[in-house]
Design a protein around this nucleic acid. Structure first.
Length: 416
RNA sequence: GCGGUAUUGGUGAAGUGAUUAACACGCCAGAUUGUGGCUCUGGUAUGCGUGGGUUUGAUUCCCACAUACCGCCCCA
């Protein structure tokens, strides 16, 4: 028997309802903020992710699904969306506009060891905004993430923010941290020794070294921001206060991807079912990325969140109660096939409708009624066909009414 | 990629080196051929993740592989 590939899942039943609910909620919600839906390719040239996400990241180093297509091209299944959205922005020359706001919703792929809340094919929803560099915009994106999640009924959220500063601040900070860690080099874990050269910021984020006091007391990026970066960060915080978004500044928050600058943030949930996979949303500002991918220098800001983790919470909190709303169940007690015509007619008129196809007797048909819980039950037997009427039973009041066949649609319209 | 635990029907599961693999839910049929969700009766794994091995005999022991979950790592 062929099984589904490792780290993938079939989504059906209640899960599928929750998934579709989130999807349509997303469309409505993003419309409120005037973000436009964008659908980008599931795979791109491998190089895009190398340059966009960053060669020093694990995502690109060892977690991508790479393949060579029949034309000999190196391709990669998208491990995230930002690089692809930026590529689209540049390729379609959206930079002729003052501002571009996009949102996306779809699968991303990472070759990882699966665990709960961590899949090889997983679903991300996210936004990217290009053009203006405004603290209000950073705050909009953060508040959007927060309100999106609370709008889904998720209550136990916390927002963490930090600033990495601009390029100048970051370079200066890198020197400071390297100097600070010079004496501690031998105590660092192997990955952090490597990080010291490539991306020293990440050491603060290390689960192992990050727990040691020496690292906890290490210089923080926010202490080495230049005046401009410092002011920008202050303005973001002010804007968040203005919007009444609760947040905490977490100086050790640096995010794993290379492209971030200035504002970085995460939204985490503290419900135990998520375990360690409790980061619902991660994002920030990436002012250098468009330029890095051969576009004109353009500021950008965005985030991504994981739908599967959101689904876990929604189900746990019972924030979403799925309802089967079948309008009508049709019972056929004669064999002219007339009942099937009625079903077709009802569906054409916008009523959700079901009928039995397995030739059940009365008992079995009523069992189906119990299962589907329709609003109305139509009984079509020989008497009805002969008399040109249909017996309509209201499943709430249990009252039965004889309705002329030609007046059935009107009757249901008035009573449903 | 490293370490650990697990894998029995549609589902939740009990169980044993050798006769019919418990129990419960679900599903199917009947009691009840024009009114149900209750009850009762019967049916429902030629099989115990896959492939090897040990054995007179393995679902039970051993090995490998696969998958799931937990920890590490990483992140959504």
């Amino acid at each position: 028997m062929i099984q589904k590939p490792k780290g993938t899942q079939d989504v059906f039943g209640v899960d599928a309802q929750v998934y579709k609910y989130i999807e349509s909620y997303t469309d409505n919600f993003m419309n409120l903020y005037n973000y436009g839906y964008i659908k980008i390719p599931t795979f791109e040239e491998t190089n895009l992710f190398y340059r966009g996400v960053g060669e020093s990241t694990d995502i690109v180093n060892k977690e991508t699904y790479d393949f060579v297509d029949k034309g000999g091209r190196n391709m990669t299944l998208r491990p995230e969306f930002t690089a692809g959205v930026v590529r689209n922005y540049i390729e379609n020359k959206f930079y002729s506009e003052q501002i571009s706001k996009f949102y996306y919703f779809g699968s991303a792929f990472r070759y990882e060891r699966p665990q709960s809340g961590r899949l090889r094919e997983f679903t991300q929803v996210g936004v990217e905004v290009f053009g203006p560099k405004s603290a209000y915009l950073d705050a909009e994106v953060i508040s959007l993430a927060y309100r999106y999640l609370s709008g889904l009924g998720i209550t136990n959220l916390s927002v963490k923010i930090n600033s990495l500063g601009d390029k100048e601040s970051r370079l200066r900070y890198n020197e400071v941290i390297r100097e600070y860690l010079k004496n501690d080099y031998d105590n660092l874990c192997d990955t952090c020794k490597d990080r010291l050269n490539k991306n020293p910021l990440r050491i603060l984020d290390c689960k192992y070294d990050g727990e040691r006091d020496y690292i906890k007391n290490a210089p923080k990026t926010i202490d080495y921001l230049n005046d401009e970066s410092k002011e920008y960060f202050e303005n973001v915080k002010k804007a968040l206060d203005l919007l009444d978004i609760p947040y905490t500044v977490d100086a050790s928050l640096v995010r794993g991807l290379d492209y971030y600058s200035h504002t970085v943030f995460e939204v985490v949930s503290n419900i135990p079912e998520l375990g360690k996979a409790n980061t619902l949303c991660g994002g920030g500002r990436y002012d250098g990325l468009v330029e890095m991918l051969d576009g004109p220098s353009t500021p950008g800001v965005g985030f991504a969140m994981g739908i599967e983790r959101i689904m876990t919470i929604i189900k746990e909190l019972e924030a979403f109660i799925p309802k089967d709303t079948l309008d009508v169940f049709v019972m056929s007690l004669e064999d002219s096939g007339f009942a099937y015509q009625v079903v077709d007619d009802l569906r054409s008129n916008g009523f959700s409708c079901e009928i039995d196809y397995t030739g059940k007797n009365m008992k079995g048909l009523w069992k189906l009624v119990s299962k589907y819980e329709p609003c109305f039950i139509l009984i079509i037997g020989e008497d009805e066909v002969k008399g040109d009427y249909i017996t309509v039973k209201d499943n709430n009041t249990k009252e039965e009414t004889k309705v002329k066949t030609s007046e059935l649609i009107d009757y249901l319209d008035m009573n449903i």
